[in-house]
Design a protein around this nucleic acid. Structure first.
Ligand SMILES: [Zn+2]
Ligand SMILES: [Zn+2]
Ligand SMILES: [Zn+2]
Ligand SMILES: [Zn+2]
Lengths: 138, 138
DNA sequence: ACAAATATGTAATAGTATTACAATAACAAT
DNA sequence: ATTGTTATTGTAATACTATTACATATTTGT
């Protein structure tokens, strides 16, 4: 039986390297950017990155941004388990800044909708595109 | 000044061909699937498809499904203009069925959230993954 | 020690999207 | 009609993203 919580000490070598690359980045990274950063640590092929990413996403430590084809370290205390239905991102189209949030009100309306149309919701992809506060000011 | 409404009669030859391919499909198609279908009509290169898709998406006649890397004809009377903030999709992970919806309640909570965090929302990507009614029954 | 399961290495390939440049067609204004 | 302008199309090459297939190594449980 797999454990239901995960921290860095649970990770394999490659997973830890990828996790570290994402954690120390100030925003989302593409798989190939991660690969390039980890070549000095022995990475040679995309699959090494993709395999690690698969696991990290499964563990809830990393999120995939579908509209960017990129990955970002989770900034929440716990996005594991059920909260995959809930997490959402804002993406600034000017500066690229990405913010991770959970909105109870959004979750509620989505679950209500799903129930209404009898759709068995497993996971929500919610990516809000626009201009962030900082860029509006400037 | 560009017109604010678009129907098939406004479209260029390539745009019309791509629109027709998507309209007659019963679900989303990838750009390369469209290309293959249109080879018999003279299409030779991906760019012919992507250029048409760009315009069709801009017109609101076609939506891009980010989590599928695919495109689908709009099934709504009018998804043009402001409603890009509002449209959402359910995607059945079993049968691949895609449904396009607008939920006032979801729109409202998203706009409320955006206002709260002072994010200037231009467009929402909302793709709900799960199991559709038909597949639950079976 | 042994078997089973998990993780890793490597190469090849498949799938998605854009850049660059040339040619053509559509359109408006002389 | 001719010119200048813009939008559209054609084509090739390239870049970016992700998976399949197969071999090897490591970890885990007994
Ligand atoms: Zn998270
Ligand atoms: Zn910004
Ligand atoms: Zn629509
Ligand atoms: Zn289904």
């Amino acid at each position: 039986m797999t454990k239901h919580t995960h921290d860095v000490s649970d990770l394999t070598k490659n997973q830890a390297l990828v996790m570290n690359a994402l954690s120390s980045a100030n925003g989302p990274l593409s798989a190939y950017t991660i690969l390039d950063e980890l070549r000095e640590h022995g990475f040679r092929a995309p699959l090494q990155v993709y395999r690690a990413l698969d696991k990290l996403v499964e563990f809830g430590l990393v999120h995939r941004l579908e509209s960017l084809n990129a990955f970002v370290a989770c900034r929440h205390p716990s996005c594991e388990g059920e909260s995959k239905e809930a997490v959402l991102f804002t993406i600034c189209e000017k500066c690229g800044n990405v913010q991770e949030l959970i909105s109870e009100s959004v979750v509620k309306s989505l679950k209500g909708l799903a129930e209404e149309i009898e759709f068995s919701l497993k996971e929500s992809v919610i990516e809000l595109r626009g201009i962030c506060t900082d860029c509006k000011a400037a």
